[in-house]
Design a protein around this nucleic acid. Structure first.
Lengths: 340, 340
DNA sequence: CACCAAAGCCAAAGCGCTTTGGAAGACTCT
DNA sequence: AGAGTCTTCCAAAGCGCTTTGGCTTTGGTG
């Protein structure tokens, strides 16, 4: 059932039927009703390929997926996707993942824009002066950044959580508890979120006349193993920290293991706070010692980004609005006063 | 730069240019070279929307993503995606995720097929007599099932790992080590993989005249918390098992925690074997007691499925070939002879 | 009553590609 | 030399939609 047939059986022109269905004003309400009715009755659905060719709109949002034998997709991605998908579903938006060589994403961005494959894209895990955001900005496709870039020299729309504030609060709490030697096991510090977290910690420490010892900062890909290694390195050195902030629950698993391996205890010997993106399959309250966390649902962020992308596509949103979500500090058993 | 312009500047017809580029035989090799050359030089890329409209082919593969507030996407998905994306990239295939109400995926399947949105789809986490595979089968779109359905009444192409064999081997090992009371902490037993694993265990036990006590079988969504609960329930009952097979590393985290909470030890009091899908961020060898596993890379499966889908799209593969991959049994410190 | 604007509809021209149905020229064969 | 066969190319007709420009009809105005 295509437009032609539908128009024919309604004894109307394709023009009118098309307009009726797409809500254009120059069609009689009575006629519109007839058309809508017939369309529904016959299950007419406009062919998206044809519509795309005619309008250039695809009804899909895009994401360039960095791939490669040595490239791992962040497990957070799936949670983000849950949220995004949940919103997208209710709006019949599809998501297209365009795999790209991790070292050359530009080609792929150019392709999907030139081909009009998607109406909007989002960018995740941005870095300072991220080339991708500069790129999509000049390419002129609607986009939103999940996270923030820095020093781009222009404004852009984004959704980020208050990483700096979160780790500021976490550090402040630890300092209040008497800790003087804090450590940070961070994610890849080429990414902005990690930079912000470190900044937040340093700021909190500075406010009390303390400093974050460089030897107390690790910046690694967020795996259990790296969490373990970083924690061991920290805890085995002279002047070991008495409190650790950790950028992910998965790394925290490794930290907990390291602490145990060293015969230490949480929070007796070392306090621990980790960032929790809220996974359904790994919860901080279920750690052997319930984990204090800075918490922000990455899933909600996914839904919100989908919502804003949809708004941008339909022209309801424009400009470079940045949105920063506060982060909860949830205190559980893994923090205590400094030992000694 | 579109076909018309290109044809014009070559003083050829669109027909010839199109054919030259698409490798049709009825064009002079000399001419083809000229065309190819000009196309490359001017960076001509056929408009996919137009091509789609004309051919019905989209150059994308599809996946219907069950979503909903209460629906969690399996974290395995992201690893699978890594593999899929890695292959897809090299073939300029995009992946479109169509979010669907988890309770009504059929509508979405019908839509993407009717709309010709994708050239092929894959189905994951199939159940026995899964309606989705019957559906896509009748809809006539190329597809591959990741996993197996059962009792569909027809053959279909799939890629699965030998879950039954894996857990058969795992159980056999445990029995050889003297264990008599084995337990299984399984995934959702409405899914075929879980059924196969249980079957494998039962078969191995039966071969030694043993049985899998129903009270020793849990079937739960694979989260750390559920692993913990299941393990506690098992280990606190009379006639507690001395060995546990567990369907995922994430659940195994919970099992380990439960064992520790109960003051027991691995492998002294209880042996543990888990299935490992090979995550980069959580490795069995890094468990406090290195975990014995049945191992199969879900990432490789993703790549293979992409490869086969591409083959089916281009007609290189057809029929209902099923492919079953063997699973490695990797023995580490978490298994030992039965206590007592 | 003539005039004009607005409302409601339509024919046809795209969008950029593939594919069908020739057609012209070169070549072979009897 | 005439007939048949390749080879190589082309014009034009789709694919199914949107949108432009224009054509009636209606109702209101001076």
């Amino acid at each position: 059932m295509n437009l032609k047939q539908l128009a024919h059986m309604l004894a109307l022109s394709q023009t009118t039927v098309s307009r009726a269905l797409n809500g254009y004003p120059e069609v009689n309400e009575e006629t519109r009703r007839r058309v809508m009715d017939a369309a529904k009755r016959h299950g007419y659905r406009p062919n998206p390929s044809a519509r795309r060719l005619a309008t250039g709109k695809s009804g899909m949002i895009g994401y360039v997926l960095p791939t490669g034998a040595a490239v791992d997709i962040d497990p957070h991605f799936v949670e983000f996707l849950s949220g995004l998908g949940d919103y997208a579903r209710s709006h019949e938006l599809d998501l297209v993942l365009s795999p790209a060589d991790a070292d050359d994403q530009e080609t792929t961005y150019r392709r999907i824009v030139a081909n009009r494959q998607v109406d909007a894209v989002y960018i995740s895990s941005p870095r300072p002066t991220d080339r991708r955001v500069a790129l999509v900005n000049t390419l002129g496709i609607p986009f939103i950044v999940h996270g923030r870039s820095e020093g781009c020299g222009f404004d852009y729309p984004y959704l980020d959580i208050d990483n700096e504030g979160a780790f500021h609060e976490a550090a402040r709490l630890l300092v209040q508890l008497g800790h003087r030697r804090l450590a940070l096991i961070n994610g890849d510090d080429r990414e902005t979120f990690a930079i912000h977290r470190e900044r937040g910690m340093r700021r909190a420490l500075a406010a009390s006349g303390l400093m974050l010892d460089d030897r107390h900062v690790s910046s690694v890909v967020m795996t259990e193993e790296n969490g373990y290694r970083a924690a061991r390195r920290l805890l085995e050195q002279d002047g070991a920290p008495t409190a650790i902030a950790c950028s992910s629950l998965i790394m925290a698993l490794g930290v907990v293991r390291a602490v145990r391996d060293l015969g230490l205890s949480i929070p007796g010997d070392v306090s621990l706070i980790a960032h929790d993106d809220v996974f359904p399959w790994l919860k901080p309250e279920n750690f052997s010692v319930p984990l204090s966390t800075t918490r922000s649902s990455i899933r909600l962020a996914g839904a919100r980004i989908a919502e804003r992308l949809a708004a941008r596509i339909s022209g309801l949103e424009d400009g470079a609005r940045g949105e920063v979500w506060p982060v909860d500090l949830v205190i559980r058993g893994s923090v205590a006063g400094a030992p000694g």
